[in-house]
Computed example of a mutant assay.
Amino acid sequence: MTRTMTGGCQCGRIRYRAQIENDEAYLCHCRMCQKATGGFAAAFVQLATAGVVWEHEPEWYASSPVARRPFCSHCGTPLGFDFIQSSGNMDLTLGSFDEPGYFRPVAHSGCESLHESWLDTKDLPRHYSATTESVASRWKAAGLEVP
């Protein structure tokens, strides 16, 4: 069943509506995605390009001879991935969705650059922003709640 979901960048300048066919997402571990997001992998939701409506068109970076990536030039949020010769599908970054918890990971891609030690982190200590003094005190000093 198709579901309309929304998302956008951190500063709110770039917003989108997307027609989602399922709850599937994947991690891409290729070096291009690691560099583009600054993370050990990029978490993506693949969907039909025609199912994405940008309320404000993002900027596009030609990240290679075969692909381009939408982003916000104001806050730097990476918003996705698209082949220049479109396959009819594109990817949006999982974290840019307003409800990223809707999705579940179903596959790994770009595994030649996969960092195995970053996949199973369930035994690491967990720290929450609202109870981490160095974070919470700064938000409080700014007169705001921890997001």
Score class of each variant (00 low, 15 high):
Gly38Thr: 15
Gly38Val: 15
Gly39Phe: 15
Gly39Met: 13
Gly39Ser: 14
Phe40Val: 15
Phe40Lys: 06
Ala41Arg: 02
Ala43Pro: 11
Ala43Cys: 05
Val45Thr: 13
Leu47Lys: 05
Thr49Asn: 08
Ala50Val: 13
Ala50Thr: 06
Val52Tyr: 00
Val52Asp: 01
Val52Pro: 01
Val52Lys: 00
Trp54Val: 02
Trp54Ser: 02
Glu55Leu: 14
Glu55Val: 06
Glu55Pro: 06
Glu55Ser: 08
Glu57Gln: 14
Glu57Arg: 07
Pro58Tyr: 01
Pro58Val: 02
Trp60Met: 12
Trp60Arg: 09
Trp60Glu: 01
Trp60Thr: 00
Tyr61Gly: 03
Tyr61Thr: 09
Tyr61Asn: 10
Ala62His: 14
Pro65Asp: 09
Val66His: 14
Val66Asp: 12
Ala67Thr: 04
Arg69Thr: 01
Arg69Ala: 02
Arg69Pro: 00
Pro70Lys: 03
Cys72Asn: 06
Cys75Ile: 09
Gly76Ala: 11
Gly76Lys: 14
Gly76Gln: 11
Thr77Leu: 09
Leu79Ile: 11
Leu79Cys: 04
Leu79Gly: 01
Gly80His: 06
Gly80Cys: 13
Gly80Phe: 02
Gly80Val: 03
Phe81Arg: 00
Phe81His: 08
Phe81Thr: 01
Phe81Trp: 12
Asp82Gln: 06
Phe83Val: 04
Ile84Asp: 00
Ile84Ala: 00
Gln85Gly: 14
Gln85Lys: 15
Ser86Tyr: 00
Ser86Asp: 00
Ser86Ala: 12
Ser86Glu: 01
Ser87Pro: 03
Asn89Ser: 14
Asn89Ala: 14
Met90Thr: 08
Asp91Pro: 07
Leu92Gln: 04
Thr93Ala: 05
Thr93Ser: 07
Thr93Gly: 04
Leu94Phe: 10
Leu94Gly: 08
Gly95Ser: 08
Gly95Thr: 05
Gly95His: 13
Ser96Tyr: 02
Ser96Trp: 03
Ser96Val: 04
Ser96Ala: 08
Pro100Ser: 10
Pro100Thr: 07
Pro100Tyr: 11
Pro100Arg: 10
Gly101Tyr: 12
Gly101Pro: 10
Gly101Cys: 09
Tyr102Phe: 12
Tyr102Pro: 14
Tyr102Trp: 10
